[in-house]
Design a protein around this nucleic acid. Structure first.
Lengths: 335, 335
DNA sequence: ATAGTTTTTGAGAGCGCTCCCAAAAAGCGG
DNA sequence: CCGCTTTTTGGGAGCGCTCTCAAAAACTAT
C-alpha cells in the first residue's frame, strides 16, 4: 500500500497534523521541521490520498463537462474536440481534473443526471448545451450546482461563454455586400440552437443596416448537416441569389454541391461564405471563405470561469463573448 | 446538506448498517424492513456519497483516458473524438465515470503522471498512445496500474485493442493490384507510430504476395499531415507511379493536391487510396477511396476490457484486433 | 414451553485526511 | 531566571461509508 500521512509522520518523527500542515503549506511550522518532513515525504514517495482529502474538504477538484445527447452526433465535427482540449488544458493549468459525460441516451437522462451530479464527485460543471430548450440548465440552476454554459443562455443568472455568432454573421454578410452583392441568401442552422438563431439574427441586422429588404424566399432553414445544406440550397436556387451566407461549413459543403449540380459555379455565379472554419473548408475546391471561432479559448474560458466561481473570485453573473474572424478564401469571389 | 445513511436510518427506524445493506443489495434483510428502508431513501432523496464510499472500498469507478502530448495536435481529426465517444458510452453502460487527461505539456509529464495516477482517483486507465516509444506504458506496467492500450504494443503483458492496420493496408493495395496497377507507391505515416509501421507492413506484404518488387523509390515517409502528404507525393512523382496508397486521408488530401499541381489527374493518371475515412474523404472531388476503421468500437472495447480487468473477469493478457473496411469511391478509378 | 439453530440487526472500528483546541515549546522583557 | 506572550505541535473528533462481529430476534424441533 502507498504510504499515509501517519507513515510520513513516523519517519519524520512528528505528528500526523504537522505533516498535514507541511503538505498543505500552512505557515506555522518551524523551517527545520518543515525540511525534515519534506525529506520524509520524498523518501516515502508519499502522495496525498485525494479521496480521503475530498471526504473532509468536500471538494474533489474534479470538473464535469456535460454534453447533452443531441449534440453528440456532431461529435465528428471539431467543435467538441477543440472545446475539450481547451477545457482540459485549463484544468491542467489549475490542477483540476476533468470528467466527461455525454448524455447520449435520452431515456436514461434522469438516471445519468443523478449519477453524475448527485454522487458528490463533481465540484462544478461546464455545460455544452447547444439547444436553448435543453432542460438541463434550469435543473442545474434549481439544484444549485455551480456551472458555466458554453453558449449564450437567456436566463441572466447563467454564467456563460460564447463566440460572437451575431458578429460573425454580420462580418460575413457585410463582406458580401462590400463585394457588391444585393441578393444575398442564407441557409440557417437549427433554429432550436442559439448559434442558429444568432447567425440568422446577424444576417438580418446587416441587411437592414444596409437598407436591403429581408426576403423570406432568400432564407432556408438547414440543420447544420451537409445533406441539409444541399436541400436548403436547392430550395434557394429558384430565387436566384448571387451570394449565400451558410451558417455552417458542413452545410456549405452541401450547398456548393447543389450549386455545382445545378450547373452553376462558385464563386462566379454564386458566392458562398460559411461559418466554423472546419479543416475541410481549406481543403475543398474552391476553398471556402468562412468565419473562424476561437473554440479552444471557449473551453479555457469556461473552465476558468467555473473555477473562479468555485473559489469565490467570481460572484456576479458573467457573460463572455469571444470575437470571431473572417477567413478570406476563394469561394466568396474576393480573391 | 444532502442526507446521509444515518439520516435515512433514523427515518426508517433502523441502523445505519441496515440501510447500507439495503442500498447495496445485501441479502440478509427482512423484506418488510427492506421496503421500509427504500421508502425512507426515496423520501429523503438519499444518494450514496461516492467519495465516502470510495475511501473504504478503495474503488472510485472512475476510469482515466490518457492521451499523450504528441497526439493532441491531431485532436482535430475525428479519431480521438470518436474514441472518446465510444469510451464514454461504454462507461455509461457500466456505470463508470470517465476522466480525460491530455498529457500536452512534455515538460510537466512527470508532475501530470503523479497528479493523475498517484492520487487514487482512478481505478484504471485507457492509454491512447500512438507512439510505440512512449515511456508511458512501461511506467504504468512498472507501477502496476491496470490499463488497456489503444494501439498494439510489443510488450505481451500489455492488454490492447487495435484496428487491423496491416489488413487495411493489404485490402487497399490488393484492390489497386486487382485494378491492374503494378507501379504502386505508398506514402507512409510517421514511422514512430505503430499505425504508420503496420500500414507500411501491409503494403509490403501485399506486393510481395503478388511478386511485385518493393522499390524504395516508390516509398515516401509522411507525417500524417496534409502538408507532409503533398511533399511526399512530390518526391514520388518522378518515379511515375500509376497508383498510390496513402496511409492517411489527411495526407491523401495533400497528395491529390500535389498530383493536380503536377498537371496530372486522379484517378486517370494516378489512382489514390487513403486510410481513416475522415468526413473530408467523401466531400472532396474526386471522393476518396479509403479504409474505414471502427474507432468507436475501439473505445468501447478498450473500456470493457479495462472493466473486465478491474472486476477480475479477465486475467490473461488480451489482444483484440478489429477488422476494417474498404470504402470504394472515385479516387481509385474503380467506379 | 425450552433449547438449539439460523437469520437478522446494530454497534464499533476504521478508511486517510483536515481542523479545532489545548498542551508544549520557544521567545522575551525585566 | 521567572512569568508572560507567542509560536509550534500533537491529540481527538469526525467527514460518510463499509464490514466484521457479536447480540438480538426469529424460527425449528423436541
Amino acid at each position: 500500500m502507498s504510504p499515509t500521512l501517519e507513515d510520513v509522520a513516523r519517519i519524520a518523527g512528528v505528528s500526523r497534523s504537522t505533516v498535514s500542515r507541511v503538505v498543505n503549506n500552512h505557515p506555522s511550522v518551524r523551517p527545520e521541521v518543515r525540511e525534515r518532513v519534506w525529506r520524509a515525504v520524498r523518501e516515502s514517495g508519499y502522495q496525498p490520498h485525494a479521496v480521503a482529502r475530498s471526504l473532509v474538504t468536500n471538494r474533489t477538484h474534479i470538473l464535469g463537462v456535460l454534453i447533452p445527447e443531441m449534440v453528440t452526433t456532431l461529435f465528428t465535427d471539431p467543435f467538441f474536440p477543440l472545446l475539450l482540449r481547451g477545457a482540459t488544458e485549463a484544468c491542467n493549468a489549475h490542477k483540476y481534473h476533468l470528467m466527461l459525460s455525454l448524455f447520449n441516451d435520452p431515456a436514461s437522462r434522469d438516471e445519468m443526471y443523478a449519477r453524475v451530479l448527485g454522487n458528490g464527485y463533481l465540484d462544478g460543471v461546464v455545460v455544452a448545451s447547444a439547444s436553448s430548450s435543453d432542460p438541463l440548465i434550469p435543473r442545474l440552476l434549481h439544484d444549485g450546482i455551480p456551472f458555466v454554459s458554453v453558449g449564450r443562455h437567456p436566463d441572466h443568472r447563467v454564467h456563460y461563454v460564447d463566440v460572437d455568432n451575431v458578429g460573425g454573421a454580420r462580418m460575413a454578410v457585410e463582406h458580401l455586400i462590400r463585394l457588391g452583392h444585393r441578393r444575398i441568401a442564407t441557409i440557417t442552422g437549427r433554429m432550436d440552437m442559439t448559434a442558429g438563431q444568432s447567425r440568422l439574427e446577424g444576417y438580418r441586422q446587416t441587411l437592414e443596416a444596409h437598407g436591403i429588404p429581408v426576403s423570406p424566399e432568400l432564407i432556408a432553414e438547414g440543420d447544420f448537416s451537409e445533406e441539409g445544406g444541399r436541400i436548403a440550397m436547392e430550395r434557394l436556387l429558384p430565387a436566384r441569389p448571387t451570394a449565400v451566407f451558410v451558417a455552417s461549413d458542413m452545410m456549405a459543403m452541401g450547398a456548393m454541391k447543389a450549386i455545382r449540380e445545378a450547373g452553376l459555379r462558385v464563386p462566379d455565379d454564386i458566392a458562398v461564405v460559411g461559418f466554423d472554419d472546419l479543416s475541410v473548408a481549406s481543403l475543398v475546391e474552391p476553398p471556402l471563405t468562412t468565419i473562424r471561432q476561437p473554440v479552444g479559448r471557449l473551453g479555457v474560458m469556461a473552465v476558468e470561469m467555473l473555477i473562479g466561481l468555485l473559489e469565490g473570485t467570481i460572484t456576479s453573473p458573467q457573460h463572455v463573448v469571444l470575437p470571431v474572424q473572417l477567413i478570406l478564401r476563394a469561394s466568396c469571389g474576393s480573391l
